[in-house]
Computed example of a mutant assay.
Amino acid sequence: MILMKRGLSSLQRGAALLTSLLILLVLSLLAVASMQNVSLQERMVSAVRDGQIALEAAEFAAREAELVLDNNTVTLGNFGVQTGLYEKATAPNIYADATWAPGSGSASIAATGFPTSELAVAPRYLIEHVGQVTNEEQINDMAVGNYGGAGAAGPPEGFRIVAWSSGRTGQTRRIIEVYYGKGS
Protein backbone atom coordinates (compact mmCIF):
# COMPACT_ATOMS: atom_id res chain seq x y z
CA MET A 1 0.00 0.00 0.00
CA ILE A 2 2.84 2.34 0.76
CA LEU A 3 4.40 1.66 -2.65
CA MET A 4 1.18 2.64 -4.43
CA LYS A 5 1.03 5.96 -2.69
CA ARG A 6 4.59 6.76 -3.65
CA GLY A 7 3.91 5.79 -7.28
CA LEU A 8 0.79 7.90 -7.40
CA SER A 9 2.65 10.79 -5.90
CA SER A 10 5.35 10.52 -8.60
CA LEU A 11 2.70 10.57 -11.30
CA GLN A 12 1.17 13.68 -9.81
CA ARG A 13 4.54 15.39 -9.70
CA GLY A 14 5.19 14.43 -13.33
CA ALA A 15 1.79 15.79 -14.39
CA ALA A 16 2.42 19.05 -12.52
CA LEU A 17 5.81 19.36 -14.20
CA LEU A 18 4.31 18.74 -17.64
CA THR A 19 1.50 21.25 -17.02
CA SER A 20 4.01 23.86 -15.81
CA LEU A 21 6.15 23.35 -18.92
CA LEU A 22 3.11 23.75 -21.21
CA ILE A 23 2.08 26.98 -19.44
CA LEU A 24 5.66 28.26 -19.67
CA LEU A 25 5.72 27.45 -23.41
CA VAL A 26 2.45 29.34 -24.01
CA LEU A 27 3.68 32.36 -22.02
CA SER A 28 6.96 32.36 -23.95
CA LEU A 29 5.09 32.34 -27.28
CA LEU A 30 2.91 35.24 -26.11
CA ALA A 31 5.99 37.21 -25.04
CA VAL A 32 7.72 36.66 -28.40
CA ALA A 33 4.59 37.71 -30.31
CA SER A 34 4.27 40.81 -28.13
CA MET A 35 7.91 41.76 -28.74
CA GLN A 36 7.43 41.43 -32.51
CA ASN A 37 4.34 43.65 -32.32
CA VAL A 38 6.22 46.31 -30.34
CA SER A 39 9.10 46.20 -32.81
CA LEU A 40 6.70 46.68 -35.73
CA GLN A 41 4.99 49.60 -34.00
CA GLU A 42 8.37 51.18 -33.28
CA ARG A 43 9.30 51.00 -36.98
CA MET A 44 5.95 52.50 -37.99
CA VAL A 45 6.32 55.42 -35.56
CA SER A 46 9.86 56.01 -36.79
CA ALA A 47 8.67 56.06 -40.42
CA VAL A 48 5.90 58.54 -39.61
CA ARG A 49 8.34 60.82 -37.78
CA ASP A 50 10.80 60.56 -40.66
CA GLY A 51 8.06 61.56 -43.10
CA GLN A 52 6.99 64.52 -40.96
CA ILE A 53 10.55 65.82 -40.75
CA ALA A 54 10.93 65.44 -44.54
CA LEU A 55 7.66 67.31 -45.15
CA GLU A 56 8.67 70.12 -42.80
CA ALA A 57 12.02 70.47 -44.56
CA ALA A 58 10.36 70.50 -48.00
CA GLU A 59 7.99 73.25 -46.83
CA PHE A 60 11.02 75.16 -45.55
CA ALA A 61 12.68 74.86 -48.97
CA ALA A 62 9.50 76.05 -50.73
CA ARG A 63 9.32 79.07 -48.44
CA GLU A 64 12.97 79.85 -49.13
CA ALA A 65 12.23 79.78 -52.88
CA GLU A 66 9.32 82.20 -52.33
CA LEU A 67 11.67 84.53 -50.44
CA VAL A 68 14.19 84.35 -53.30
CA LEU A 69 11.44 85.55 -55.65
CA ASP A 70 10.13 88.17 -53.20
CA ASN A 71 13.53 89.68 -52.49
CA ASN A 72 14.31 90.08 -56.21
CA THR A 73 17.34 87.82 -55.75
CA VAL A 74 16.66 86.49 -59.24
CA THR A 75 15.33 88.23 -62.32
CA LEU A 76 13.43 86.79 -65.27
CA GLY A 77 16.70 86.85 -67.23
CA ASN A 78 18.13 84.25 -64.82
CA PHE A 79 15.54 81.65 -65.82
CA GLY A 80 16.87 79.12 -68.28
CA VAL A 81 20.44 80.25 -67.52
CA GLN A 82 21.06 79.47 -63.84
CA THR A 83 20.79 76.02 -62.27
CA GLY A 84 17.47 75.44 -60.57
CA LEU A 85 15.69 78.22 -62.52
CA TYR A 86 13.72 77.01 -65.55
CA GLU A 87 11.59 78.47 -68.30
CA LYS A 88 8.08 77.14 -68.86
CA ALA A 89 7.96 73.39 -69.60
CA THR A 90 11.75 72.94 -69.34
CA ALA A 91 11.99 71.76 -65.71
CA PRO A 92 13.50 68.31 -65.24
CA ASN A 93 11.54 65.28 -64.09
CA ILE A 94 10.78 65.97 -60.43
CA TYR A 95 10.61 62.24 -59.66
CA ALA A 96 14.12 61.50 -60.94
CA ASP A 97 16.83 61.09 -58.31
CA ALA A 98 19.28 63.05 -60.47
CA THR A 99 17.11 66.18 -60.14
CA TRP A 100 17.65 66.28 -56.39
CA ALA A 101 21.15 64.84 -56.12
CA PRO A 102 23.49 67.14 -54.21
CA GLY A 103 26.57 68.44 -55.93
CA SER A 104 27.64 70.73 -58.72
CA GLY A 105 25.75 68.86 -61.47
CA SER A 106 22.41 69.00 -59.68
CA ALA A 107 19.32 70.38 -61.40
CA SER A 108 18.09 71.94 -58.15
CA ILE A 109 19.18 74.47 -55.53
CA ALA A 110 20.05 73.52 -51.95
CA ALA A 111 18.02 75.31 -49.30
CA THR A 112 20.03 76.83 -46.48
CA GLY A 113 19.13 77.31 -42.85
CA PHE A 114 17.34 74.04 -42.08
CA PRO A 115 19.23 72.00 -39.45
CA THR A 116 20.92 69.39 -41.63
CA SER A 117 21.64 67.18 -38.61
CA GLU A 118 17.95 66.26 -38.82
CA LEU A 119 18.22 65.11 -42.46
CA ALA A 120 20.21 62.69 -44.57
CA VAL A 121 20.49 65.36 -47.33
CA ALA A 122 19.77 69.10 -47.27
CA PRO A 123 16.36 70.08 -48.71
CA ARG A 124 16.35 71.34 -52.31
CA TYR A 125 14.08 73.29 -54.64
CA LEU A 126 13.67 74.39 -58.22
CA ILE A 127 11.64 77.25 -59.69
CA GLU A 128 9.92 77.22 -63.06
CA HIS A 129 8.71 80.49 -64.61
CA VAL A 130 5.27 79.74 -66.05
CA GLY A 131 4.62 83.19 -67.54
CA GLN A 132 2.19 86.00 -66.88
CA VAL A 133 -1.02 85.16 -65.08
CA THR A 134 -3.89 86.94 -66.80
CA ASN A 135 -6.93 85.04 -65.56
CA GLU A 136 -8.43 86.54 -62.37
CA GLU A 137 -9.25 83.06 -61.08
CA GLN A 138 -5.60 82.03 -61.47
CA ILE A 139 -4.53 85.18 -59.63
CA ASN A 140 -6.81 84.26 -56.71
CA ASP A 141 -5.43 80.69 -56.66
CA MET A 142 -1.82 81.90 -56.38
CA ALA A 143 -0.19 83.67 -53.49
CA VAL A 144 0.38 86.90 -55.40
CA GLY A 145 2.61 89.44 -53.70
CA ASN A 146 2.88 93.12 -54.67
CA TYR A 147 -0.19 92.94 -56.90
CA GLY A 148 -2.63 95.79 -56.67
CA GLY A 149 -5.28 94.47 -59.05
CA ALA A 150 -6.49 96.72 -61.88
CA GLY A 151 -4.13 99.55 -60.95
CA ALA A 152 -1.02 97.39 -61.17
CA ALA A 153 1.51 97.95 -63.97
CA GLY A 154 0.85 94.55 -65.51
CA PRO A 155 -0.37 91.06 -64.77
CA PRO A 156 1.64 89.12 -62.20
CA GLU A 157 4.33 86.65 -63.17
CA GLY A 158 3.57 83.04 -62.25
CA PHE A 159 6.08 80.57 -60.86
CA ARG A 160 5.95 76.88 -60.07
CA ILE A 161 8.09 75.96 -57.09
CA VAL A 162 8.91 72.32 -56.46
CA ALA A 163 10.63 71.47 -53.18
CA TRP A 164 12.12 68.11 -52.15
CA SER A 165 13.49 66.73 -48.93
CA SER A 166 14.65 63.44 -47.50
CA GLY A 167 14.05 62.30 -43.97
CA ARG A 168 16.62 61.43 -41.33
CA THR A 169 17.36 58.01 -42.77
CA GLY A 170 17.26 58.91 -46.45
CA GLN A 171 14.54 56.28 -46.98
CA THR A 172 11.69 58.81 -46.84
CA ARG A 173 11.21 61.55 -49.41
CA ARG A 174 8.65 64.30 -49.73
CA ILE A 175 8.02 66.50 -52.77
CA ILE A 176 5.69 69.48 -52.65
CA GLU A 177 4.62 71.81 -55.41
CA VAL A 178 3.61 75.44 -54.89
CA TYR A 179 2.31 77.92 -57.44
CA TYR A 180 3.37 81.45 -56.66
CA GLY A 181 2.70 84.75 -58.34
CA LYS A 182 4.46 88.08 -58.07
CA GLY A 183 3.08 91.35 -59.27
CA SER A 184 5.21 94.01 -60.87
Rank of each mutant, 00 (worst) to 15 (best):
A33P: 03
A33Q: 09
A33W: 05
A33Y: 01
A33N: 11
S34M: 13
S34G: 14
S34V: 01
S34R: 10
S34K: 05
S34T: 11
M35P: 00
M35C: 12
M35T: 14
Q36P: 00
Q36E: 10
Q36T: 00
V38W: 04
V38F: 10
V38I: 13
V38Y: 04
V38E: 12
S39Y: 07
S39F: 04
S39C: 02
S39M: 13
S39A: 13
S39H: 08
S39K: 01
S39W: 06
L40E: 09
L40Y: 07
L40N: 13
L40G: 07
L40R: 14
L40C: 04
Q41P: 02
Q41Y: 03
E42T: 13
E42P: 01
E42K: 11
E42V: 07
E42W: 06
E42I: 01
R43D: 09
R43A: 13
R43K: 12
R43V: 08
M44K: 14
M44Y: 10
M44W: 08
M44I: 11
M44S: 14
V45G: 02
V45M: 09
V45E: 05
V45I: 10
V45S: 11
V45P: 02
S46T: 02
S46R: 08
S46E: 08
S46M: 10
S46V: 00
S46D: 09
S46L: 09
A47H: 06
A47V: 06
A47Q: 12
V48D: 07
V48S: 06
V48C: 02
V48A: 11
R49E: 11
R49F: 01
R49V: 00
R49K: 04
R49D: 05
R49S: 06
D50L: 08
D50G: 13
D50P: 07
D50M: 07
D50R: 09
G51Q: 10
G51E: 08
G51D: 10
Q52P: 00
Q52L: 15
Q52S: 15
Q52G: 09
Q52M: 15
Q52I: 14
Q52D: 14
I53H: 00
I53Q: 02
I53R: 06
I53N: 04
I53T: 14
A54I: 02
A54N: 02
L55A: 13
L55F: 11
L55H: 09
E56A: 15
E56D: 15
E56L: 15
E56H: 12
E56I: 08
E56G: 13
E56M: 14
E56K: 13
A57F: 05
A57N: 03
A57M: 04
A58R: 03
A58F: 02
A58L: 01
E59I: 00
E59L: 09
E59F: 06
F60T: 06
A61D: 01
A61M: 03
A61Q: 07
A61K: 00
A62G: 15
R63W: 06
R63S: 15
R63A: 14
E64P: 00
E64L: 01
E64S: 04
E64A: 03
E64N: 07
E64K: 06
E64C: 04
E64T: 02
A65I: 05
A65S: 14
A65N: 08
A65D: 11
A65K: 10
